[in-house]
Design a binder for these strands. Structure first.
Lengths: 133, 133, 133, 133
DNA sequence: GTGGTCTAGACCACC
DNA sequence: GTGGTCTAGACCACG
């Protein structure tokens, strides 16, 4: 069932203001989405990855658990943790993430009484006003 | 000097995963941005709002303090807490909120290895996929 | 004992972030130091000044009490409150205030490990650095 | 990643008229500016410093939070609180402190109806007056 | 009456 | 172990 391909964990540059486990999940998600981490590949063991990234194993464990919950990884007891084989599951997960992010963005727009387009315009326009202060 | 308008605090539905004081600040920000809470209006006293929302006064105080620091509210000693009169400050704060929301959205896109346009397309065009289930 | 001269309280523009009684004391001190309020002149009654400035009489009372303590005013029971007659007392008070302000400034300098001259230079130089950001 | 240097908290002599958390922030700011507390050093834990100074942990936490907001400290979740590494941030903060101190000094001068130069002269040349007492 | 400070102590998230 | 949130309640400064 396991693929023989391997995966080389990228270097990390953690932002100390966000939870590590969350940033690690982002990294792995990106690796999967970009195709560098392919369906069916076996993930490094929690201990190995924790060693590579010089962090507490509990932190990596939490990352794996979260990625399992959103459907990117699956664990087989005694065998290890694998990238989910069915690409459709991954696509569905990406879709769920996209929808959630978009919904949150819409909520901010609504909370400011604006449309999403107005909000994007506001966020991306460079402040000309500041010039004459 | 103070406005005689009043404001009726909306009902709250706290999300247990985020700090109350933060969610309260979001609620008040929304009320201001939407025009329901207008510049110059006096806020309910810390004790009153704490009573209405059934929380500890310190929690409301923390919310008021944070909103004061980012320029939404101002306190007059012994008089109460007021929505800032200067609309420009509010506009500036809206800009900051917009930029933050947009940045978070961009980060999600990046973590999935997509552009923001691709992410928006994905989030808004899911009906096609559902057809073949 | 009382002078027949009178004093017309200036208009005030309170800064809502500082105690009123403190700002009022500043105003009266300035009036005395500038010669507009002369030694021996009888101050308005607490009620009158509170009426003129539209504030709580307790606030004016606190101001008078503080100015009495630093030697600018003196109260004669049943007669009212007067600007101290002896100019030397006022000069001494000014000196005390000056020394205290200067000492505080020196303490800040020391706390930053700088001389007062360096601190003044730092505070008054316009930031050239900011230009290239 | 963290520095191994340590820091011995100085003794404190609280002034009962000012908030403890504010005085604590002043103490720490002084320690940083004077070089006794160096960039990257780990601060004592909230609980430890509260024990050393015999105050409630919440009070120390408030100090740390405020110093974090103005850019002196930074927190790493589960790891502790550290003096910010970037010396530029500290220089900026020093500038802000200098400007504030100078502004307060100017305000005193204004409240006495004097220029800052006259105020400095008055504060530093009092020995002449004393001669004729 | 208003906001603000401080304490004591419980409970949680993170590493 | 770390910091962070929240509560309960006392006490103070201000107007």
């Amino acid at each position: 069932m396991a693929s023989n391909e391997t995966w080389k964990p990228p270097e990390i540059h953690p932002d100390p203001t966000r939870p590590l486990y969350e940033q690690f999940a982002d990294v792995i998600r990106t690796e999967i989405a970009s195709g560098r981490l392919r369906p069916g590949v076996r993930m490094p063991s929690v201990r190995d990855l924790a060693g590579t990234w010089r962090v507490n194993p509990n932190t990596v464990m939490r990352t794996y658990r979260d990625l399992e919950q959103i459907g990117f990884l699956m664990t087989q007891r005694g065998q290890g943790t694998f990238v989910v084989r069915d690409e459709r599951v991954i696509e569905d997960s990406k879709l769920a993430i996209a929808k959630r992010a978009w919904q949150q963005f819409q909520e901010v727009a609504q909370s400011l009484g604006m449309t999403v387009h107005e909000l994007i315009d506001l966020a991306t326009q460079e402040e000309v006003d500041r010039a004459h202060e």
